[in-house]
Deep mutational scan, measured.
Amino acid sequence: HITLTNLITEETTHVVMKTDAEFVCERTLKYFLGIAGGKWVVSYFWVTQSIKERKMLNEHDFEVRGDVVNGRNHQGPKRARESQDRKIFRGLEICCYGPFTNMPTDQLEWMVQLCGASVVKELSSFTLGTGVHPIVVVQPDAWTEDNGFHAIGQMCEAPVVTREWVLDSVALYQCQELDTYLIPQIPHSHY
């Protein structure tokens, strides 16, 4: 019994991606959610070859190996599938703050939850000092008015990073160091 759908849910078992011959794909929301959820992320060749051979072929032979941004053979989907007991964002409290493009905020929040993070909706909701690490995620190029994202640091004691930190961490299924993704914050004294 196979159901085809464009939506990823808890029940989804396989995410089928358009890939090149070496099982490398573009980074899409579907790709990120498939990895975050520990699903099989496979090339569409799995479907076409299975139909051709009239049997369901082994997914291992068709698993996506990499993507056009993070590298052609990083094995993120395999790492995620085999590490669902070791979520990459466990112990983190993440607030997805401000506008985002090409990806609804609720989907970004679901993605970080699938990776083990707790989501907070407001900067004031962080449970500071409880052994949980707060992180604010923003997408600077989605902000149309002044660079308000440079002043988020005044509203909460949390590192502010770009959305790329989430996307790179999920694609590779390895929590990336914050340093290269940090957004400089204007210190309090400048006000």
Rank of each mutant, 00 (worst) to 15 (best):
E145R: 06
P184Q: 15
N58L: 12
A151T: 11
M111Q: 05
L114G: 08
G38F: 08
T9K: 04
F62Q: 02
V170F: 03
K87V: 05
Q154Y: 11
L92W: 04
M56Q: 15
V138A: 09
G148C: 07
E177K: 15
S43R: 01
I186L: 14
L33I: 14
V24M: 05
E145P: 09
T105R: 09
C25A: 12
E26L: 15
T101S: 13
G38S: 05
W165G: 03
P104S: 07
L178W: 15
I152M: 07
N102T: 04
C95S: 04
H190A: 04
G34T: 02
M111V: 13
T12C: 07
V132I: 09
E82T: 14
R81A: 01
R65S: 13
F45L: 15
E109N: 08
E82F: 15
E157L: 14
Q176R: 13
E53R: 00
D85Q: 09
L178P: 05
Q185D: 02
G116A: 06
E22H: 15
G153L: 13
D67S: 00
V68S: 11
V132M: 05
R72S: 12
P184L: 02
Q84P: 13
L182M: 04
Q174D: 04
G98A: 14
E93I: 14
P134R: 13
G71A: 06
I94M: 15
A21I: 13
P187R: 06
Y181W: 03
G91H: 10
K52N: 11
S189P: 05
Q49G: 02
E177T: 10
A36P: 01
Y97N: 09
G71L: 02
Q84L: 13
K121E: 09
F126S: 13
N70S: 14
L178A: 10
H133K: 15
E82I: 14
E22V: 08
T13G: 01
H133R: 15
T3F: 11
Q154W: 04
S83G: 15
A21T: 08
I88T: 04
L92A: 05
N147K: 09
V112F: 09
Q174P: 03
C156A: 15
V170L: 04
V119G: 12
F23Q: 05
S169C: 09
G76A: 04
Q154S: 12
V166G: 04
E122T: 08
P187A: 14
L167V: 03
Y97H: 15
F89I: 02
S189Q: 09
S125W: 15
P184S: 12
H188T: 08
M103S: 04
F62R: 01
V136P: 02
G66E: 00
R90P: 04
L182G: 13
T105P: 12
V68P: 09
K78A: 14
K87Y: 08
T13I: 02
G71T: 02
G76S: 15
T130N: 13
V161K: 02
E53L: 03
H150R: 06
C156L: 13
S169T: 04
G66Q: 01
K87P: 10
N70A: 08
R90C: 15
Q75T: 15
A158V: 04
S125C: 15
E63A: 12
K39F: 06
P77D: 00
V24L: 05
W143L: 11
V68K: 10
E26G: 07
V137A: 06
G71C: 12
P187N: 13
E93S: 15
I135K: 03
K18A: 13
L33R: 05
T180P: 07
I186S: 08
I183T: 08
L178R: 09
I8N: 13
I94P: 01
G116V: 00
I8S: 05
C96R: 02
K18L: 15
G153S: 06
S43Y: 05
L182V: 10
V47L: 13
M17S: 03
A117T: 03
P134S: 15
R86Y: 11
A142P: 07
S189A: 06
K78R: 07
Q185A: 06
E164Q: 07
G116Y: 03
N6L: 14
E177R: 12
P184R: 14
S43K: 01
C95N: 05
V64N: 00
Q49S: 10
V132A: 14
M155E: 08
I94Y: 00
E109Q: 08
G98P: 04
M56S: 05
T48R: 09
C25R: 01
E109K: 13
H1V: 07
W46T: 00
D141V: 05
S169I: 02
C95G: 03
R54S: 10
K121L: 14
R86Q: 10
G37T: 03
W165R: 01
L92Y: 10
W143G: 05
Y181L: 02
I51T: 11
H14S: 01
Q176P: 04
F126W: 06
H74P: 06
E53T: 12
E122M: 11
L123V: 07
P104T: 13
H1L: 12
Y181E: 03
R90G: 10
T3Q: 10
N6H: 06
T12P: 00
C96Y: 05
H74V: 05
V120I: 07
T130R: 12
G116F: 14
E11R: 06
T12F: 05
I2Q: 12
N147S: 10
I88V: 15
D85G: 14
M155V: 10
S169M: 01
G71Q: 05
L7G: 04
I8C: 02
T5Y: 07
E93P: 14
T130M: 12
Y173L: 13
P184A: 15
L57T: 15
C175S: 15
R72C: 08
V47T: 10
D61Q: 11
F23T: 01
V112D: 01
H190K: 11
I88L: 10
N73P: 03
L123Q: 11
W40T: 07
A36Y: 01
W110T: 13
V64F: 01
D20K: 01
Q185P: 12
Q75P: 02
D67V: 00
A117I: 02
L33K: 04
W165L: 02
N58A: 07
Q185L: 09
V64S: 02
E10R: 11
L7F: 12
F23M: 10
W143M: 05
L108M: 05
